[in-house]
């Protein structure tokens, strides 16, 4: 893993092995803890500055990586240095992405406490449907334990027993993942097939011109996309002016012109909205519940 070229860490070795590794990890852990303690000691009026600064530098990295010229510009002194800097930012991107991913993955237990609290209370107090909460706990830990065991051989039990345990875990994991996870997911997803029928039936009443327009377009597209649509207007000639009245051609025209224009209008608006919001967050100009809190 070639992290070094972009991170000047000349004073400390990149990798250590053997007993020294434990020493280094422990030392770094202590240094990190000391850093956290130092953060805790920051007086309230400087806290805002820390948060604003960190946010700004986080955003600055990705902005500069894109905005700085990556090739020296002729006749401009110093541009070679800028380009070199910009290119080193680009090279560091996979490493930054790895770090961000690993750090974010430590949030995996964040919400779980809340989930456990709700369900353990249900089980303890035997509220109505407490057995459902019990099923929650059982399945949660079963798949977690089985999953971890199937990957890590337990050599202490002796080779035979370990192999048996692993085989059982692999089978159980198969049942839980192929049987439960996948099918529950796909079934829940497929409920939409039913709901879309009742939604269309109920919602598409010609209460207003708007609803009528939406209904009409949806109807034409629904017919035009499937083979039946082509068959319905088969009697029209396949070339010439009348051909454009064939359902599949109307459908395609609707999709590629009015629909495309409408989609693009929405996207332009959303894109500008996202730019504005990003700017406000980056420069800590944002206002609202989360941002107005006293630190």
């Amino acid at each position: 893993m070639g992290y070094l070229p972009d991170f000047p860490m000349a004073l400390l070795p990149v990798s250590v092995h053997g007993k020294m590794l434990a020493v280094y990890i422990f030392g770094a852990l202590m240094a990190g803890a000391a850093g956290l303690v130092a953060l805790m000691a920051v007086p309230p009026r400087y806290r805002k500055i820390v948060v604003v600064g960190v946010t700004f530098f986080g955003g600055l990295y990705f902005s500069l990586e894109f905005l700085l010229p990556h090739q020296p510009v002729a006749h401009i002194p110093g541009s070679a240095g800028v380009a070199r800097f910009a290119n080193s930012l680009t090279r560091a991107k996979p490493n930054i992405a790895d770090w961000a991913m690993v750090i974010a993955s430590f949030t995996l237990l964040l919400g779980t406490f809340n989930l456990f609290a709700i369900h353990s209370r249900a089980v303890k107090k035997k509220t109505e449907g407490w057995y459902n909460s019990l099923a929650f706990f059982i399945t949660f830990f079963l798949i977690l334990i089985v999953g971890i065991l199937k990957d890590s051989p337990v050599s202490k039990l002796g080779p035979g027993a370990a192999k048996g345990l692993q085989s059982v875990c692999t089978s159980l994991y198969g049942i839980l993942f192929d049987g439960f996870v996948q099918n529950l997911d796909a079934t829940m997803f497929s409920l939409i097939a039913f709901y879309i029928v009742s939604a269309a039936y109920r919602a598409f009443r010609v209460r207003s011109a708007e609803a009528g327009l939406m209904m009409g377009t949806a109807g034409i597209i629904m017919l035009g996309l499937v083979p039946v649509g082509a068959w319905l207007t088969n009697w029209l000639p396949s070339t010439g002016l009348l051909a454009s009245l064939r359902l599949e051609n109307i459908t395609y025209w609707l999709l590629t012109w009015p629909n495309m224009a409408a989609q693009r209008a929405i996207e332009f608006g959303l894109a500008i909205g996202a730019v504005a919001m990003s700017l406000r967050i980056w420069l800590s100009l944002e206002r609202g519940s989360f941002f107005d809190r006293q630190l």
């Binding site: 809340n114 709700i118 209370r121 829940m188």
Partner: peptide, 11 residues
């Protein structure tokens, strides 16, 4: 408890 984390899987 009214602010509930359920799970991070869509369905």
């Amino acid at each position: 408890e009214d602010i509930r984390y359920l799970t991070n899987e869509q369905f």
